[in-house]
Design a protein around this nucleic acid. Sequence first.
DNA 1: ACCCAGGCGACGA
DNA 2: TCGTCGCATGGG
Length: 291
Amino acid sequence: MDYSLVYESQGSTIVADIKNLDLDQTLDCGQSFRWRRLEDASWEGVAFGRYCRLSLEHGGLVFHGTPLQEFEAVWRDYFDLTRDYCAVKKLLGSDETMAKAIAFAPGLRVLRQEPWEALCTFILSQNNNIPRIKGLVERLCETFGAEVPAPPGHLPLRSFPSAKTLADLEVEDLAPVRAGFRAKYILDAARRVASGQLLLEPLYTMELEEARIALRTIHGVGPKVAECALLYGFGRVECMPVDVWIRRALDYLYPEGMPGAFAPVAGLAQQYLFHYVRHAPDALPETVAKK
DNA sequence: ACCCAGGCGACGA
DNA sequence: TCGTCGCATGGG
């Protein structure tokens, strides 16, 4: 539990004693592609069809215009605030390399996103770079999402389009998204999910290897995307996606593999490491980083 | 212009 | 089963 005191004040929810959360580190680290940083350093976005604007103000986390009831129904779990990151850091920090990665971004958390959104966005992520993934996701939502009302002074945003919505489209309909060869993958995923041929709900608790196999029945979902969907969409923190960055990091920093004790939270270790090797100048030697 | 990106499927050995 | 290649697109 990374907070103990939460209350509602003037229509906003305030988490007074939040620990282990930095919004910049968490909302712009390549796990979610829909959050935007505003001029005043607050962040706004949409998840589970709800608008959210939040900021960190002298140690307290403020959900602007969000009733306590909605915080408890949606955002507490979305930000995984009931997880004890102090315990996670204690475990991972016993390793010197991981201690450096954690020190570089101590407020990084792995979000618990909507399953369909996580699956879909990481299908779009393949052989792609993060700035461009954001563009694809933005155009997908702008074109096919439903309008989500925003408070006065803020432009309405759009929800992530449902599988049902996308299932009725053809590849040509997705042209404005400019997803390239990934468009057909999105449609296959949408059709399998919308038809009930692939049930997402059981993937929260299904035996892991079985869940991986189920996800990989989608055309365009391989080992890496399945791992991302399980980690980011289903809270399966033992899942560890290995992309080109993590591959480099493991090869150089953990040639013998990561410590076995990390396994239960390998996905969280992966997120610290991913952020570290992409942004810390001294994490990898120049020759390794550029390769 | 050029390289490569949070990979995957198809294909051939 | 394993290595190689093409894929759409555009950010840096």
